[in-house]
Design a protein around this nucleic acid. Structure first.
Length: 270
DNA sequence: ACTATGTCCTGCGAGC
DNA sequence: TGCTCGCAGGACATAG
C-alpha cells in the first residue's frame, strides 16, 4: 500500500510518538509468518531494547534499537508494510484487530501493533540495514541518468525497480511520468537528456509535495496517528481512467505494464 | 545479465 | 440481497 511519501509520513509519526520508548515484551502471531527473520530471533532482538529513532529507508521503516541500559547495540528492526500493512500505537487491552501479527508492549504503557490483512508485509531484524536502491530525494541528476539510460525495459518498470531507486511505487511512478510528459511504455534507453531531466525534477517535486500532504489515502492508508493523507486529491492520472486530463481534457488511458496498471494522458505524454 | 510473467494473500466494490 | 469477478499502493522466484 504505502510508497515513499506514505512510509515517510508513518515513520515521522512514529518517531514523534515512540522515540525513546522501551520495548518490554513482544508477541508475534504464529500462522504463515510475515517474518523474514525467525520469530524467536525477532522477539529476542526487540526485547528490552530502547527505540532511539524511527526513520524511513526506501519503503522500509527502520527502528534503530539500543540496549535499554544505554549500551551500544546497533541492531535495527525493519518493517516493510507491503500493500496493506499498518503500524498502530494504541492503548493496551484494546481489542486486537483482525490480522494483527505483532504486538510490542512499551514501557510507557502503550502498544505498538503491526496489522496486515494481505500479509505482504515483512518484519526482520538486521544490523546496519541499507536499502539496495538510491533515495530519489537524495540522488544527483548524473547518477539518476546513469541508473536508467542503458535499460531497455519500459521507464515505468525501471522506476518501480527497487534495486535502482528505492521508494517509488505505482502511484508516484505514474504521477511523475505525467508531470514529465513521458509515456510509461517508453524504453528507458530512449529517453533524451532533456526527458531525464524533466523526470528527475518531476519525481522529486511529486514526492516532496506528497510528503507535505501526508501521502495518498486511496483505500485504507492512515498514518501512525490514524490520520489520512491528502495527496490523492492531487493525482492527475493515477486512478483516473476515462476521466479528462486536467491539462488538455483528453480522457486518461489505463494500460498494463509488467502486471501493474498504468495511467497516462495520450496527448500530454509522448 | 536483463527482462517479463506468475504467485503470494485478503477484502472490496462493481455488476449481474 | 447475495453471488462472482476483477482489481488492489509490493516484491520475490522463476522462466526465457
Amino acid at each position: 500500500m504505502p510508497e515513499l511519501p506514505e512510509v515517510e509520513t508513518i515513520a515521522r509519526g512514529l518517531a514523534k510518538r515512540i522515540s525513546g520508548d522501551v520495548i518490554e515484551s513482544v508477541w508475534l502471531g504464529s500462522k504463515p509468518e510475515p517474518l523474514k527473520s525467525p520469530a524467536a530471533e525477532i522477539a529476542i532482538a526487540l526485547q528490552a531494547k530502547r527505540i532511539s529513532t524511527v526513520r524511513r529507508a526506501g519503503k522500509h521503516i527502520v527502528f534503530d534499537l539500543e540496549s535499554a541500559r544505554g549500551a551500544i547495540a546497533s541492531s535495527q528492526w525493519i518493517v516493510h508494510l507491503g500493500m496493506t500493512g499498518s503500524l498502530l500505537v494504541c492503548a493496551p487491552g484494546l481489542e486486537l484487530e483482525k490480522h494483527t501479527h505483532a504486538v510490542l508492549q512499551l514501557a510507557s504503557g502503550r502498544e505498538l501493533r503491526f496489522v496486515d490483512p494481505r500479509r505482504f508485509g515483512r518484519l526482520s531484524v538486521i544490523e546496519n540495514f541499507e536499502a539496495p536502491g538510491a533515495e530519489p530525494l537524495q540522488i544527483a541528476f548524473d547518477d539518476f541518468g546513469a541508473l536508467f539510460h542503458r535499460r531497455k525495459t519500459p521507464i515505468k518498470s525501471a522506476l518501480l525497480n527497487q534495486n535502482l531507486l528505492s521508494g517509488v511505487g505505482n502511484i508516484y511512478a505514474d504521477e511523475a511520468l505525467f508531470r514529465a510528459r513521458i509515456r510509461p511504455r517508453r524504453r528507458a534507453s530512449s529517453l533524451t537528456h532533456d526527458e531525464f531531466h524533466r523526470l528527475y525534477n518531476a519525481l522529486k517535486r511529486v514526492l516532496r509535495e506528497a510528503i507535505r500532504l501526508g501521502g495518498s489515502s486511496v483505500s485504507d492508508y492512515v498514518d501512525a496517528d490514524g490520520e489520512e493523507g491528502f495527496f490523492q486529491l492531487k493525482h492527475r492520472v493515477y486512478g483516473r481512467e476515462g476521466k479528462l486530463c486536467r491539462v488538455c481534457k483528453t480522457p486518461i488511458k489505463r494500460i498494463v505494464i509488467a502486471g501493474r496498471s498504468s495511467h497516462y494522458c495520450p496527448r500530454c505524454q509522448k
